[in-house]
Computed example of a mutant assay.
Amino acid sequence: MLSEAPGIDWEDILDKFSSYEGTIRGFCKENNISVHQIDYRRSILVFQFSPRRR
């Protein structure tokens, strides 16, 4: 398993991403994260708040 970069405030990153109007790649490049990292974090949120989970 890959270790996660320390010090990344994912709540802040995802908040910025929600209002970003460019591409995912552009956002990730500007914030020094990989596309995989943001996709993974977004999928965790979708899973946590899905109706099946409740």
Rank of each mutant, 00 (worst) to 15 (best):
R42C: 13
R52F: 11
H36M: 07
L14N: 03
L14W: 05
K16H: 04
I13V: 15
I44C: 06
G26W: 10
R41D: 04
L2E: 03
D15C: 07
I33C: 01
F47S: 10
E4R: 03
Y20V: 01
I24V: 12
R52P: 05
N31D: 03
K16M: 02
F27K: 02
I24C: 08
S43M: 11
R54G: 02
I44Q: 11
Q48E: 13
D39V: 07
S3F: 12
M1R: 13
R41N: 12
P51G: 10
N32Y: 06
Y20N: 01
L2M: 11
E30Q: 12
M1H: 12
E11S: 13
G22V: 04
S19I: 08
I33F: 05
D12S: 12
D39Y: 10
S18I: 05
Y20T: 00
D9H: 10
S18P: 00
Y20Q: 00
I33K: 04
N31C: 01
D12I: 05
R25I: 06
F49A: 05
R54A: 05
D12G: 03
H36V: 09
R53A: 01
R41L: 08
S43I: 07
D12Y: 14
I44W: 11
I24D: 01
R53V: 07
N31T: 02
P51Q: 08
L45E: 06
K16W: 04
N32W: 02
K29P: 00
S19A: 07
S18L: 06
R54E: 06
S18R: 12
I24G: 01
E21T: 15
F49L: 12
G26F: 10
F49G: 09
I33A: 00
I8S: 02
G7P: 06
S43Q: 15
Q37D: 15
R25E: 13
P6C: 00
L45T: 00
E30G: 00
I8G: 01
E4C: 01
I44H: 08
S18E: 14
C28A: 04
D39Q: 13
S18K: 12
R25Y: 12
R52T: 09
Y20W: 15
G7M: 02
R25Q: 13
H36K: 14
S18D: 14
R41H: 15
V46S: 06
I44G: 02
D39I: 07
D12W: 13
K16D: 04
D9I: 03
K16N: 03
I24H: 00
S43E: 14
D9L: 02
S19K: 11
P6W: 01
P51W: 07
P6L: 04
S43R: 12
Q48L: 14
H36F: 15
K16A: 01
S18H: 06
D39M: 08
Y40F: 15
G7I: 02
D15G: 14
R25M: 08
D39F: 08
R52N: 14
Y20M: 02
N31S: 00
F47N: 10
F17R: 09
T23C: 06
A5M: 04
L2I: 07
N32Q: 05
E21F: 06
K16Q: 10
R52W: 12
D39G: 08
M1K: 13
F47P: 00
L14K: 05
K29G: 00
Q37S: 14
R53C: 05
E4N: 05
K29V: 08
N32S: 09
R52I: 10
M1L: 14
L2N: 06
